[in-house]
Nucleic acid binder design. Structure first.
Lengths: 214, 214, 214, 214
DNA sequence: TATGAATGAGGCTTCATTCAT
DNA sequence: CATGAATGAAGCCTCATTCAT
């Protein structure tokens, strides 16, 4: 007896929906995103979205969780322990720089969630878990650097993470207004290379300097 | 007998609408903002929004223009020429830091416009005009610093503006997800003071350093 | 003392408004017409419309009255009494044909009023007055024709008027759907000439024939 | 326990909406028609209008298409080939006369579309298709008549169709202004019968006559 | 006389979601 | 599992008209 030839791959369907949802939310934000559009970007029916994710909010949170999981998973493969403090710091910066430049979708999802005052993220244990060890990773690098003398200024690892994040993230998140106003293209290869170097060395020289302007 | 209090104050009405619009758009983004809500935040009828600004888009652009005008106008009062290069740079950084921290609305409006791919800004001549001289202001500071030896590294003024902007802006724009994930409060007075110092000195030490990690 | 140089020509203003109103109502119908648009087509302010005509309905009725007045006034200058019955009939037909073809605005206003079930016309004494003597004019022609033998079939003058009207009016009122469906152009000079002849001779031969198909 | 009676009958729903739409558009024209009203004339929710027809324009076009389809479908059942040329012509005239008198809705819909300069019709292939063979039908009648001598005057079939249409259509489309002005009732049975006869014989005598007034 | 400012009511349409099969 | 049909609530915007000067 021939069964009806419907696709029976729940995981595949979920994955496809999530992929479409991330693209749509990243593009239009939470209010601007359209469930219909996400349905259309998918081969399955819109109804499945409700079946698997409950509602728009549930889908959005799932998209956010996936986005964070991916970057942090990659980050954990960097093998920073094998490098000198200085090299490790640079590798971490480079990774952040490259990943965010390559994954505008991720950056926009985070921007979007900040427009939402992070209210949806608060409901997700997963996101906190998944983000738990970046600070530790940076702390290890800094400590190593203080010991071997590569870094002279003691800075909280959160602050170093903040600087890396701010400089790499803003380049992508604010590229549209920045480029429009200053008539440049932040995504252009030469600007990109120059900025990557600049960010590296701004943070490094900060950690090596001592004399302050208060 | 109390006469009906129908005011005839076009400028006042426009101003009131714009104020409400900025708050609403900053809070909810373009799609999330509600014309009804903007009307309700106003003493005049919702209908006047259309009378003066045509439609939601027109109102949004006007809000954006006003937001940019205000920060740039203040910026022009800084009298940086009277200061040493180092002091001038720090005053510019401090101004940006303080203004953006105090005017979350401005920061969110810019974030919002980036979520929109800066598409509405492109229709506004005014915004480009109003933003035209920040780069020159920074260039003057840098040139002075190179001459008197306070700065040793030659950097394009756009890049310096980028660093200032990125570090000050991100603190405000991404405070919600950052604070949520790392359990800190970027708006807290001590963190704020520490960060202001850090940003100043990261940029200063970058402009003084030469040795690079490539 | 120099008085303010405002236009003080009430009749001119009224005329200008009416002209604009006829065009707008003829183009868009009653519901489709926009008071704003009529205002814009005029050099005076929209407010004057209310000043002179009370409201949209009043303006519409005035436009209708003017349209009827004009055609009937012209009709009265035809001097049909000087012609033979046959020639007089043809001149009346030609006049109707030419006037309606040249004054699409008139035809469309009448169509519009029929879409309104003639409800606005009912409030206007003037329209009935102004239309009172066409039937008499036709009756005079027919009677002359019966006497001199040019016409053999006795037909009520209302019916003859009906045929003239129907054939001339429909050509203009329905030209858009007719042309679209049959891929022709009712307004083209050759079609127009052929039709004018046809209408004349259809009515003439009807009035001369006797043998019926019942 | 009575279950909620939510019907699932797409074809029925569409049909019901179309029926209501035709009535509303015929009564008030395109701009005057109210989607709300059409919804209210229906047992289903107003929302379904957009589900099935997209928007007001789509609904209007569908209504127009249906109206044309119906009259042309009936017309094709007339079996004119079995009749003599003279009888066939009369049957076609009678059909048009009776149908338009009985279906004021159809007539008003066409009037409405002419007020719209046939702009919506232009987007509909269906309407052109459905109207394609009336001219052929008339041509066949005329050719037969020329052969057997019932008709002596050669007239383009489009022109004959034009006369039939004009005389039958105008009676219905312009009945309101005509009746109002001349104090008669075009829909009254005796007038109606007299006119039907008149139209038949005007067209017949035209096709039999030769002597022209140029 | 003339006019810019102001408005309530209502129009079309969209949206996330649920129902019935 | 899967889906087309159905919907209430609410969004943006337009309209004729009136107010205050």
């Amino acid at each position: 007896m021939v069964k009806s030839v419907r696709k029976l791959d729940p995981e595949g369907t979920k994955r496809e929906i999530l992929r479409a949802a991330r693209a749509e939310f990243a593009e239009k934000g939470f209010s601007g995103a359209r469930i219909d559009e996400i349905g259309a970007r998918t081969k399955t029916a819109k109804r499945m979205i409700y079946y698997y994710f409950g509602n728009k909010e549930g889908l959005y949170i799932a998209a956010l969780e996936q986005a964070y999981s991916e970057i942090r998973a990659l980050e954990r493969t960097l093998e920073l322990d094998d490098l000198s403090a200085d090299d490790a710091l640079c590798r971490m910066i480079d990774f952040t720089f490259d990943y965010e430049q390559a994954n505008v979708e991720f950056v926009r999802l985070i921007s979007c969630e900040n427009m939402n005052y992070a209210r949806y993220m608060k409901d997700s244990k997963k996101i906190r878990e998944v983000n738990s060890n970046i600070i530790e990773a940076i702390e290890k690098i800094l400590d190593r650097g203080y010991l071997d003398g590569s870094f002279t200024r003691h800075a909280p690892p959160e602050d170093v993470h903040f600087m890396i994040s701010a400089l790499c993230f803003y380049r992508v998140s604010n590229q549209y207004t920045f480029s429009e106003i200053f008539g440049c293209d932040l995504a252009a290869p030469d600007t990109s290379a120059r900025h990557k170097n600049m960010i590296r060395n701004a943070i490094r020289s900060y950690l090596r300097s001592t004399e302050d302007h208060d």
